[in-house]
Amino acid sequence: MSHQGIVSANCEMEEEVWLEARLAQDDVNKRVAMINRAFQMTRLQAVGFPYLVVAFCWHWRRFGILRHGLLHCAVDRCQGTSITMEQLPLGAPIADAELVQPRLDTGLLHQKAYRHVTQARRHHLKQRQATSLHVSSARLIRKPLWKVDVSHAKYGEMALLLDGLTGGYYVMP
């Protein structure tokens, strides 16, 4: 990827968009009960976590047919942790969500996304299938999370962070 690619991708960046919250606000209570039946939800706060999603595409020829590859790489704008995503399901913004402020520069995030995708494709390169990567789009997105305060008769008060996409949870310290 050239630096021109990064610059043009930056220019194309739109306003922040939200990923679809598959775990809707109305279902959070049910999900909390599934995690532990003894939990009583006392407070619910939506959180929008900032990511930069860069879509990379590449082409290669196999058996005479031109093929195309596409991979989305999401880079967390606070810590720079990156993950790949096969789909990018967009949804409506969540009202009254707490927006975590991004701390990293987008140029750096582009580099991280590029490195991530090149690493992910590295074993293909060993088979001599490497081709140059192109940035097809770059978007600033917000990933929906639910911060839930719960109380437990035996273990007391605690806070959970729920993934709005997968429903996974993490006990916050």
Binding site: N36, D76, L145, L161, D163, T166, Y170
Partner: peptide, 25 residues
């Protein structure tokens, strides 16, 4: 603090980074 074993073990640790940033923020 002590937590139920199942609750601890079934956490999605991929959220650790986001939880850290949310609590930090």
């Amino acid at each position: 603090r002590p937590l139920p074993n199942r609750l601890k073990a079934q956490q999605d640790f991929a959220l650790a980074n986001e939880a850290y940033c949310v609590s930090y923020s």
